[in-house]
Design a protein around this nucleic acid. Structure first.
Lengths: 202, 202
DNA sequence: ACCTGAACACCGTTCAAGT
DNA sequence: ACCTGAACACCGTTCAAGT
C-alpha cells in the first residue's frame, strides 16, 4: 500500500523542515480546504510563526506560491502513482488505490485535490500555474491509460486515452459533488460504485 | 429547444430590471467566471452603478447574496429541466440538451456551474447556502432519474438513482476539468463521448 | 540569508446621515 | 425606500531597515 502523501503536509520530516517547506505544507492544506483565493499570507505567516512580509521572501507573489504548490503536487502524484504501479498486485487493486487517494482527502476534513480546486479558480491563476493543471491531467491520464492497457490488451490506443480522461474527470467530479455535500465519503463511494456498474471504471 | 437561461444574466427584461436583479445578474456571471471568494462588493457596485455600501442594502452580507444566487440558480434549473422534458422528442435528445447546458457556459467565456463552483468553495459558505447545493443535486438527479426510467423501464429504482447521481457528478467533473484546460469545449465533448462509450451516459 | 514594521491600495461590513 | 461617505479591521504587496 502506497503512502497517501498527497493529503499530508508536503514534508513530515520535522527536524529539518525549513521555512519554505513549512509554508508550502500549511498552504497546501489551506488550498485543499478553503481554496487558493481564500489563502491569506497573513494567516499563513502566523501558522508558521513569521510575519506576512517574510512569506514574500520565500514566495515573492501569491501566484509564485501557487506555482510551487501545483508543481510539488504533480511531483507527489507522480511518486504516488509509481508506488502504486510497483506494489499493486492486480490492475483492479491499482485502480482501487487510485480512487482511494481521491477519497482520502474528503474523509474527515473535506479537503479537495489541489488541482481540482485550482481548476475551479483558474481565472485567478497565471499561465505558469495553469500549465501545471494540464501537467497533472497528463500524469493522471498517462498512468490510467497504462493500467487500462494491461487490463484490456485489445483496446485501441485512442479508446484507452479517452477512457483514461473520462475516469480522471469523473473521479474529480465525484470528489467535487461529495465535497459540496459536506465531504461525505459514503456519497463518494456511492458515485464510484455507480461508475463501476455502468462500466466506466470496469 | 429550451432557453439556456442558466448561463445568461438572471433577468434580461431591462425595462423593469430593478437594482436587486441587476446585482444578482452581475454576481452570477462573476461567480461563474471567478468564484464566490473572488466576488467583490465594490466591483459589483461599480458594475451596476451604485456604491458598495448600497449593495448591502439589498444583500446585508456576502453569504446573503450567495444564498439568493444559489436559490435562483435552483429555480432556473428547475424551469430549464421542465422545458426540456416538455420539448424533447426522445430521451436521448433530453440527455443531449442536459449535457449541452453544462457545455454552454464553458464555450467562449469559460464559466462554470454556480453550484459546482460553490461546491469547491463550500468552506466559505454557511448552511443557508450549502442546503441549496444539496437541493440542486436533488433537482438534477430527480430529473435524470425520470429520464433514465423512461429509457430503461425495467431498471430497479435504486439503480436508476445511483446512475442519475453518477451522471450528475461526472458531468460536473467534465466541466471542471475542461475549465482547468482553458474552458475548451472540445475537451468537454471528448470526455462526454467517452462517458457514452463506457455506457455511463447510454 | 532571513526577517521586520510601516505604508499603500484593496476588501467586507457598519452606521449615521442624506433624499 | 434607497443611497452615500467615512470608518473599521482585513488583504497582497513593497521597501527600507534590521540581524
Amino acid at each position: 500500500m502506497a503512502t497517501v502523501s498527497l493529503n499530508r503536509p508536503v514534508r513530515t520530516d520535522e527536524a529539518r523542515m525549513d521555512m519554505r517547506e513549512a509554508i508550502m505544507a500549511a498552504a497546501r492544506t489551506t488550498v485543499q480546504r478553503d481554496g487558493y483565493n481564500a489563502l491569506s499570507f497573513r494567516d499563513l505567516a502566523s501558522e508558521v510563526g513569521i510575519k506576512s512580509a517574510s512569506v514574500h521572501y520565500h514566495f515573492p507573489t501569491k501566484p509564485d506560491l501557487a506555482e510551487a504548490l501545483a508543481n510539488r503536487y504533480c511531483e507527489d502524484m507522480t511518486t504516488f502513482l509509481e508506488e502504486v504501479s510497483q506494489n499493486a498486485k492486480t490492475t483492479e487493486a491499482a485502480l482501487e488505490t487510485y480512487v482511494a487517494l481521491f477519497r482520502s482527502g474528503l474523509d474527515g476534513t473535506n479537503r479537495m485535490c489541489v488541482i481540482g480546486m485550482m481548476s475551479a479558480e483558474v481565472n485567478a491563476l497565471p499561465p505558469s500555474v495553469t500549465v501545471q493543471l494540464e501537467r497533472f491531467a497528463q500524469i493522471n491520464t498517462d498512468w490510467l491509460q497504462n493500467v487500462l492497457a494491461i487490463k484490456n490488451p485489445r483496446m485501441a490506443k485512442e479508446k484507452l486515452e479517452a477512457r483514461a480522461l473520462a475516469i480522471y474527470a469523473s473521479i474529480e467530479g465525484a470528489q467535487l459533488i461529495a465535497r459540496g455535500r459536506g465531504g461525505d465519503p459514503l456519497l463518494f463511494d456511492e458515485i464510484v460504485a455507480a461508475y463501476k456498474v455502468s462500466g466506466l471504471l470496469g
